[in-house]
Amino acid sequence: MESGKILPGVKVIIANTETKGPLGDSHLGEIWVSSPHNATGYYTVYGEEALHADHFSTKLSFGDTQTVWARTGYLGFLRRTELTDACGERHDALYVVGSLDETLELRGMRYHPIDIETSVIRSHKSIAECAVFTWTNLLVVVVELGGSEQEALDLVALVTNVVLEEHYLIVGVVVVVDPGVMPINSRGEKQRMHLRDGFLADQLDPIYVAYNM
């Protein structure tokens, strides 16, 4: 779904994460923003200003090399539309895919957690929430069970099949947990790395765990 309208005075561009060059319409890359409200740095817990030129003051490697951009750390793409705003200007739709730090590298390919998680959630009405991450080159799928615990075993085969059919990936571990186990931050974002830490520390108190190793 479209993430929202780009406000007047705000410029957004999609940049290649490796070359730092601009990408075209509907191409996936890192979202860069330029506006009068951009920050120049941030303060650490020690009260010292930490400037990160590569994030708060970066420029494209070619094309418009004069504009100063802030890197958001999120992957997304722009799609040009025929819609116009109140000023008669064409409205570009911005789509946010997810955090750049949470992309999964499996079999030499890049996968986005939200794509796999959406497939899993849609596969059964008893799956209330889902999060995925990697562990020793294995794909781990954690699902919150919204139904009875008797359904936990049935979900394992269902989750494994839907990920294989839609994403051509073999699930290494399926973890079925109670609702509310998934850590969520104040912005409503899933904290997949915190969930991974809890899994490795055996702190999730799962209903059922299936290993396909």
Results as ranks from 00 to 15, higher is better:
residue 29 G to R: 12
residue 107 R to D: 12
residue 152 A to V: 05
residue 116 I to Y: 00
residue 2 E to A: 08
residue 210 A to P: 02
residue 159 V to R: 02
residue 148 S to D: 11
residue 27 H to M: 10
residue 153 L to K: 15
residue 81 T to D: 06
residue 194 H to E: 06
residue 27 H to Q: 12
residue 24 G to C: 03
residue 24 G to T: 02
residue 117 E to W: 00
residue 59 K to R: 12
residue 17 T to R: 07
residue 102 E to Q: 03
residue 118 T to K: 14
residue 124 H to D: 15
residue 79 R to W: 01
residue 151 E to F: 04
residue 208 Y to E: 04
residue 115 D to Q: 09
residue 55 H to S: 04
residue 90 R to C: 12
residue 107 R to P: 01
residue 48 E to Q: 13
residue 37 H to V: 11
residue 46 Y to V: 04
residue 121 I to A: 14
residue 51 L to E: 06
residue 143 V to F: 06
residue 183 P to Y: 03
residue 90 R to Y: 14
residue 71 R to A: 08
residue 181 V to R: 01
residue 179 P to K: 14
residue 158 L to W: 01
residue 60 L to Y: 02
residue 213 M to W: 04
residue 171 V to G: 00
residue 149 E to A: 07
residue 163 V to P: 11
residue 91 H to P: 00
residue 78 L to P: 13
residue 70 A to L: 13
residue 158 L to P: 00
residue 20 K to C: 11
residue 150 Q to M: 11
residue 25 D to L: 00
residue 194 H to N: 02
residue 79 R to T: 05
residue 132 V to W: 01
residue 161 N to V: 00
residue 151 E to N: 03
residue 148 S to C: 07
residue 185 N to G: 01
residue 182 M to S: 07
residue 156 V to H: 02
residue 93 A to V: 07
residue 121 I to Q: 15
residue 67 T to C: 06
residue 182 M to D: 03
residue 44 T to W: 05
residue 135 W to L: 10
residue 150 Q to W: 03
residue 12 V to K: 15
residue 85 D to V: 12
residue 27 H to V: 05
residue 119 S to F: 08
residue 167 H to P: 06
residue 20 K to F: 12
residue 118 T to W: 06
residue 108 G to A: 09
residue 133 F to I: 02
residue 188 G to R: 08
residue 27 H to D: 11
residue 49 E to Y: 10
residue 93 A to F: 07
residue 152 A to S: 13
residue 131 A to I: 04
residue 99 S to A: 13
residue 189 E to Q: 07
residue 156 V to D: 07
residue 91 H to R: 12
residue 39 A to G: 09
residue 30 E to D: 11
residue 190 K to G: 05
residue 55 H to P: 00
residue 47 G to C: 14
residue 16 N to M: 06
residue 48 E to G: 08
residue 197 D to W: 06
residue 179 P to C: 09
residue 114 I to Q: 14
